[in-house]
Amino acid sequence: MDSEWVIDAQGLEKSYGSGASRFDALKGVSVQIAPGETVAIVGKSGSGKSTLMHLLALLDEPDRGTLQVAGNDAKSLSKRAVNELRNKEFGFVFQQFFLTPNVSVLDNVILPLKIAGTGGKERRRRGMEVLEQLELADKAGNKATTLSGGQKQRVVIGRALVNAPRVIFADEPTGNLDTATGAVVEDILFDLNRSQGITLVIVTHDEELAARCDRQIYIRDGLVVSRTASTHTGAHALSTADALTAGGAA
């Protein structure tokens, strides 16, 4: 992977609806993410965190602003190339689990590989490897609905991981979990970042989780703000956030 691999977003704007019901969810957000970095997108509910993550992950298109992914302008990429990028280079952990019920844990995990067109044998091998890594190998044949919340979230991480992505986008990965289980899931994610160099973009309102990231981007009402303007946390988070978001704010 070349050092060019970055997400470079400038002046992203996104609004929903039109006329009187028009709502500006993002009002000009600039974000840069370097390879191998862990970045937290922090903000209150409704501040536009998920919206921003969706734009960065090419799941949605901004109304205004430019977005470069690995040196390519997102607008210039064909639909097919965007699909390919999301399938091969990105892993997703959404705000909800989105596991397919009545389908086995293994089948849930290998969904991205199936979409990619990987052969059945290879899919199984990769899927089991990931499940072992997440200590879920014994649950491979179980239906997804029979798992506990923490186990489900690990399956979701397994699914994000199975295609060996360069970036994992995680939207509130611990939001549905109790503190202890949440900590386990966090450890797994940061471990992946350390051992495999996977870039992490974590959306959260949990200050402690944000503090574990290399860098925090604070969002308020669709704008990037400095840490002090959003909430207050420990001195560690404060210094990194101020240092790194200064250039990004519009």
């Binding site: 799941l59 639909k79 097919r80 699909n83 390919e84 990028l85 999301r86 399938n87 091969k88 997703f92 959404f94 909800q96 989105f98 397919t100 969904l111 991205p112 979409i115 990619a116």
Partner: peptide, 16 residues
């Protein structure tokens, strides 16, 4: 709906 959304998010094309 969600399953379809998920598959599309993971790069499945509309044609597929």
């Amino acid at each position: 709906t969600r399953e379809i959304g998920l598959m599309k998010a993971m790069g499945m094309s509309g044609g597929k």
